[in-house]
Design a binder for these strands. Structure first.
Length: 279
DNA sequence: ATATGGCCCTGGTTGC
DNA sequence: TGCAACCAGGGCCATA
C-alpha cells in the first residue's frame, strides 16, 4: 500500500531514469473504469511528449511533460500525467523484452528504447492526463506533511472532532498519510487513535507533527515499507517494515513496554496501538 | 460536520 | 490436501 514514503521513493526512481526521455508510443490494456481520463484521450495526449520531470504530491506521482514537437520540447511543462497507485499499483522502468507481469495495464515506449509500465492487480489505481493549456496544474487535495508548519498543522485539527486517526487518513487535510504511517506516528507521539482531534492539547499536536515528520523522513531514507509486495521503480524492496512498532504487530509485545499491541477498527481501517504507551 | 457502510478488485490467509 | 469463504484497504459515494 504505497503511502507518502513509497510514492516518494518511486517518483524519485522514475525521475532519475526517465527524465529527458520521450514517450514515443502508448499502449493501454483493458482497464475499463479506473482511468480518470479515458484511455484513448490519454494515449493521444501522452504520445510524443518529452518527460521533463517526475515528482510526488501527496500520494500522487506527477509527470511534467513537454511539447510533443520534437524540435521544440522546451522546459516549460505543457501537460501532466498523474498516477495514483491505489493499493497495489506499480510503476516499472523495464527493457521491452522483460516479461510482462500479469495486470499490466499501461506500457509507454520511450525513445531510449525502454518501457515504463503500470501494473495494478487490484485496480484501485488511477491515471489522469491533464493539458496545462486548458487547465490548472494538479494540486494535491491537502497539505504536505513534510513541509506544513506547526500553526497550520494545529489549525487543521483543533476545530474538528473526528478521531485523530481518521483525520490523519483524510487526504483533504494532510495528503500522503495512509494506514501504516498514521499508526506509527500516533505511537511515536503517544496518542490513542480514537482521541478526538479537538481534545488534543497544543503539546500533543506538536508532538504528533514532529513524530509524523520523523517517521516519514526515516521511511523515505529506508526506501519505504515493503508490506505485501511493494517495490520501487527498479524493483527494489524497502526496509521500513522492519522498523514498524505497531503496524501489523497485533498481540506482539510493545517494543517499549512489552504490553501486547492491540488492533481496533477506526474509520473502517485496521488500527494498531499500544494501550499503555498511547493515551 | 461527522459516521457508517458498500463498492471496487485480486491474492493471500484461514477454516473446514 | 483442496477448495471456498473471508479479509485487506484507498478513495469515493450514498445514506444516516
Amino acid at each position: 500500500m504505497p503511502e507518502l514514503p513509497e510514492v516518494e521513493t518511486i517518483a524519485r526512481g522514475v525521475h532519475e531514469r526517465v527524465r529527458g526521455d520521450r514517450i514515443v508510443d502508448v499502449w493501454f490494456g483493458n482497464y475499463r473504469e479506473p482511468f480518470k481520463t479515458p484511455a484513448p484521450r490519454q494515449a493521444k495526449g501522452l504520445a510524443g511528449r518529452a518527460v521533463l520531470a517526475v515528482h510526488r504530491t501527496g500520494k500522487h506521482i506527477v509527470f511534467e511533460l513537454g511539447s510533443s514537437d520534437a524540435a521544440n520540447s522546451g522546459t516549460e511543462p505543457e501537460a501532466q500525467w498523474i498516477v495514483h497507485l491505489g493499493m497495489t499499483g506499480r510503476l516499472l522502468v523495464t527493457t521491452p523484452d522483460a516479461p510482462v507481469a500479469a495486470h499490466t495495464h499501461a506500457r509507454l515506449d520511450l525513445a531510449s528504447g525502454r518501457e515504463l509500465r503500470f501494473v495494478d492487480p487490484r485496480r484501485f489505481g488511477r491515471l489522469e492526463f491533464r493539458s496545462l493549456k486548458k487547465g490548472a496544474p494538479f494540486q494535491g487535495p491537502g497539505a504536505e506533511p513534510l513541509t506544513i508548519g506547526a500553526d497550520e498543522f494545529a489549525a487543521l485539527f483543533h476545530s474538528r472532532r473526528m478521531p485523530i486517526k481518521a483525520a490523519l487518513l483524510n487526504q483533504t487535510l494532510l495528503a500522503g498519510v495512509g494506514n501504516i504511517y498514521a499508526d506509527e506516528s500516533l505511537f511515536q507521539a503517544g496518542i490513542r487513535p480514537r482521541r478526538r482531534t479537538n481534545r488534543l492539547t497544543a503539546d500533543e499536536l506538536g508532538r504528533l507533527r514532529q513524530a509524523l515528520l520523523k517517521v516519514l523522513d526515516h521511511a523515505i531514507r529506508l526506501g519505504g515499507s515493503s508490506v505485501s509486495d511493494y517495490v520501487d521503480a527498479n524493483g527494489v524492496r524497502g526496509f521500513f517494515q522492519l522498523e514498524h512498532c505497531v503496524y501489523q504487530r497485533t498481540g506482539e509485545p510493545c517494543l517499549r513496554c512489552q504490553t501486547p499491541i492491540r488492533r481496533i477498527l477506526v474509520a473502517g481501517r485496521g488500527t494498531h496501538f499500544c494501550p499503555k504507551c498511547q493515551r
